[in-house]
Design a protein around this nucleic acid. Sequence first.
DNA 1: GCACTACTGCGAGCAATATGCAATAAGACG
DNA 2: CGTCTTATTGCATATTGCTCGCAGTAGTGC
Lengths: 156, 156
Amino acid sequence: MGTDPTTRDPAAAGVGSAEDVLDLVRRHGGRVTSARKLLVHALFDGRGHQSAEDLAAAVQAQAPDVHLSTIYRNLDELEHLGVVTHAHLGHGPATYHLAAEAHGHFVCEECGAMVEVPDTLFSGLSRTARAHFGFEIDPHHFAVLGRCAACTARDA
Amino acid sequence: MGTDPTTRDPAAAGVGSAEDVLDLVRRHGGRVTSARKLLVHALFDGRGHQSAEDLAAAVQAQAPDVHLSTIYRNLDELEHLGVVTHAHLGHGPATYHLAAEAHGHFVCEECGAMVEVPDTLFSGLSRTARAHFGFEIDPHHFAVLGRCAACTARDA
DNA sequence: GCACTACTGCGAGCAATATGCAATAAGACG
DNA sequence: CGTCTTATTGCATATTGCTCGCAGTAGTGC
């Protein structure tokens, strides 16, 4: 991956809709269950940074007795398929989103504000990391902490 | 903070030895207990990235019934004093080290290898973050994930 | 020494996530 | 359409990393 915006699994590339994802699941020998269907739709609908619990709530709005562990298991599977990824934005729960929408995050340690950051911002770091350490960074998984503009101003 | 290498709390600056730390603790109205003394020594001795559990083990080698919760409480206090910081290098427990030795981390998602990264590597990102978002990054808290040279080579 | 209270050990509690198991239901096949 | 296979589920329970309340202990100023 690195800063390259394409997804890891070639089969997951070009997955543009919930139906595409479900097709992919089927092609991998998976079954399209109602829980899975609802979860995938929740991922496409509620575009953003949803925790497993958020997603569970969204799914349970349609099918109340889908269990949280089912959500975790399905997120796990979708992650293996390269369709979704999770990111850690702080000390709380992880947030899940479509892999195709991967981007970096800045999170304010003081107020918790979060900024979505285009990958291009990391290209310099990406280059030096590769040059100095042969390391291919993936700037999406962990947020970069710090202090947002507002808090920096207030503290000064 | 940002990429600035000095520590946040001016009182914690120039703390170069376990005794210095204990003095600082005393000056802040804290007591120098045996558990605390051992913990601070463990932090100075086992230079590196130790989890709370590691540190507990080191302390317990001398005083077997120091409880893990005491370790956590003391680490917390030392963190407030600006003497130590913790970093998250992956999905496991946090690692603690002296704040004066702050540095960035690259962690390989595949093999778990960790590279300590000088702050200078982040100066470009630091600049663009400030310029584009007014955001002062602290590149120490969360590791940057990715793939190390060995794994990148093997995968290719 | 003595009192005062920070600190400790302990056990319980918590949030986020994982897992073993028996019951269920996709979906391939006839 | 019925049957069979087995992926998937719901549930309960476990695990991990960390936090908290409490009653007892032990540093420190006097």
